[in-house]
């Protein structure tokens, strides 16, 4: 994980064959510039970045469902709960499950755990839109390789 550049996911662990659920992991680094301010001498993962980690987890699931045809953009965070502090060195297990896929949007339930203990959860809604002009899709596909996204499996699913 490199939270200072919003790389919250280290790897996609599993996506279920029905493409309804995903499991990702991210190791909170010992060193990051975000801890210089949050907080000096008392490093804690910012809650907004835990939301971001859950959003990115869900994002990979939505990309799997639409075979990278469109890009999910976070639109709504409901019932977001940050239950305990997350500190450097802890490994986040992130899970997401699609509740509903509508026309141009997806609603998902997502949560983060550390050593099996629930530490954050939320219901997220994404707008799912055509890729913007430019290199965004190529960049996302490259990141997919880095996080072990099962591109071949999804293409053949």
């Amino acid at each position: 994980m490199r939270p200072e550049v919003f790389k919250m996911i280290d790897r996609v662990v599993a996506i279920d064959p029905a493409l309804n659920k995903i499991h990702c992991q991210g190791l909170v680094p010992q060193e990051s510039s975000i801890f210089e301010g949050h907080f000096p001498g008392h490093p804690i993962m910012p809650g907004v970045l835990l939301i971001e980690a859950m959003a990115q987890t869900t994002g990979w699931l939505i990309l799997a469902r639409n075979r990278f045809e469109k890009m999910p953009f976070l639109a709504t965070v409901k019932e977001g709960k940050l239950r305990t502090f997350v500190v450097p060195g802890q490994n986040l297990d992130l899970y997401s499950e699609v509740l509903h896929e509508g026309s141009g949007f997806v609603v998902a339930r997502t949560q983060g755990l550390i050593e099996g203990k629930l530490i954050c959860n939320a219901e997220l809604t994404f707008r799912v839109l055509p890729w913007p002009e430019g290199k965004m899709k190529a960049v996302v596909l490259k990141v997919a390789e880095h996080v072990n996204f099962p591109l071949t499996d999804i293409a053949n699913a």
Binding site: A75, T76, H100, G102, S103, F105, V107, T125, R127
Partner: peptide, 8 residues
């Protein structure tokens, strides 16, 4: 954005 909730 609210209409997404309504559509859901």
């Amino acid at each position: 954005l609210d209409f997404l909730d309504i559509a859901f």
